[in-house]
């Protein structure tokens, strides 16, 4: 239960961050990716600030023996840059560049993005299911406790 409440609050803060940063606006995202046009570098500031807070915060958190409501920190341990990672990232980037939505904003936009947001989320869910129901999902390495 406590795990669910903390996740709910973390989701609220994450969503507020996306809204305040205007990352929920596809036009803003596409203006960031449009480096040869009227470039809007705002999203670099979103990522920069998020990275600074997370880098410092993670280091402090990992000094604790374990998370407050869980037995262990679960952090991906895979190290190799393989073809799956590269191919997946390129496909994601193409989709991101076509619509200006990535998974977080796509979910956050449901209450105000109208039909396009729902259609995108439906298609995204289908894409997720295509992967997770396929044999590709099977050899996925389980994250190991740090």
């Amino acid at each position: 239960m406590r795990k669910n409440v903390s996740a709910l609050v973390a989701g609220l803060i994450f969503g507020l961050g996306l809204v305040i940063a205007e990352m929920v606006n596809p036009a803003k995202v596409l203006a960031f990716l449009d480096v040869s046009g009227h470039w809007d570098p705002s999203l670099a500031f979103v990522m920069g600030a998020a990275l600074i807070v997370t880098a410092v915060g993670y280091r402090l958190v990992w000094k604790m023996r374990q998370p407050v409501f869980a037995a262990a920190f679960i952090v991906p341990q895979t190290r190799e840059v393989d073809r799956r990672l590269a191919f997946g990232a390129v496909l994601f980037g193409i989709g991101w560049g076509l619509a200006g939505l990535c998974p977080g904003p796509a979910i956050a936009a449901l209450s105000f993005g109208g039909a396009p947001a729902w259609v995108f989320l439906g298609a995204m869910s289908a894409g997720v299911a295509m992967f997770d129901l396929s044999p590709l999902a099977a050899p996925r390495k389980q994250p190991v406790a740090a």
Partner: peptide, 22 residues
């Protein structure tokens, strides 16, 4: 506003790691 929003996203990530370890 981009930096404030980004800092909130970072805060959420740190919180989820500190409390739930994820």
């Amino acid at each position: 506003s981009a930096a404030i929003g980004g800092a909130l996203i970072g805060l959420s990530a740190v919180m989820l790691m500190a409390l739930n370890g994820r």
